[in-house]
Simulated assay, not measured.
Amino acid sequence: MLNRLPADERRAQLVESAMGIAERGGVSSVTIRAVAEEAGVSLGVVHYCFESKEALVAAMGEALVLQLSQAMRYAFGQAHADEAQTGLRGLRELLHSGLSAMWPIIEATPNRQLLTYEITAYGLRQQAAGAELAGSIANKQYSTMDAEAVEFLERSAEHTGTRWAEPVPDLARFALAVIDGIVLRWLVDRDGEAVIASLDDLVQMVTGKAVEV
């Protein structure tokens, strides 16, 4: 049965096997042979789907971006559905609800969050060495998250009758950079209370960039 999986399902299976290996031992532990053993397939099957480790890591990065994007969209969608207030107070509560809904998703997957950072660093190193395929992952990761954050900020302003006084892409970039730092620090000290305080500060700073229409 394994050998008859459709190509897309086979690739997804191998990517998930590779991520399981990387979560346990880091990206350096991901090899074609290790993935074949993890997935219970032959080396030839893995080589057929991925011509190199770089191609496999690139697919891992794409899968992580998709998972993060879906989680972010779900959390922000819940916030929009729950909040009904308007004005700057409503905007502040809406931003807080979105981040609060997103955090449990991050907190429940620490190894996958760490892997996201590791794949980004791996991609940048490969890009510096001339491997553009793996190197493109970092750019795609951030461009995708930028797009999700921009959409949330724009919809939040429209929803609350406010507008942003600064370019929304700049605000999204700033907010995501802060969240990146918050998540990385949490991976180090697992201080959930500090995360809540930091997210509150972020909401206050971002809301300060908006005005009521």
Rank of each mutant, 00 (worst) to 15 (best):
L124N: 08
G130S: 08
E54M: 11
A134C: 13
E9Q: 13
L43A: 08
P104F: 08
G20T: 07
A129P: 06
K209L: 13
G26Q: 03
E51R: 15
G98P: 02
R163H: 10
V178C: 10
A157M: 07
L43Q: 13
Y142F: 14
N111A: 14
V203Q: 06
A210P: 00
Y48I: 01
I179N: 10
N111P: 01
V57W: 04
A194S: 03
Y117E: 11
H47Y: 14
A12Q: 09
V30G: 00
E158D: 08
A81M: 13
I32K: 03
R73N: 02
A101H: 15
G192Q: 10
G98M: 03
T120C: 11
V178E: 13
L14I: 06
G25H: 15
E166C: 12
F76K: 09
E51H: 12
I106N: 01
R89N: 10
E51S: 13
L153E: 03
L176Q: 04
L153T: 12
A157Q: 05
E9G: 13
Y122M: 06
A34Y: 05
A34D: 04
Q113H: 04
A34E: 03
A149L: 12
E154I: 09
Q85T: 10
F174M: 04
A138K: 00
F76W: 11
R190E: 04
T86E: 14
V57T: 07
N111V: 05
R173P: 04
V30E: 01
A138G: 00
A81N: 10
A210D: 00
A39V: 15
P110I: 06
W186S: 08
D170T: 15
P104L: 07
D191E: 11
V46K: 04
G161N: 06
R92G: 09
A197W: 01
R4P: 00
Y142I: 06
A71D: 14
A36Q: 10
D200H: 14
L5F: 15
T109L: 00
R155I: 00
V65Q: 00
V27T: 11
A71Q: 07
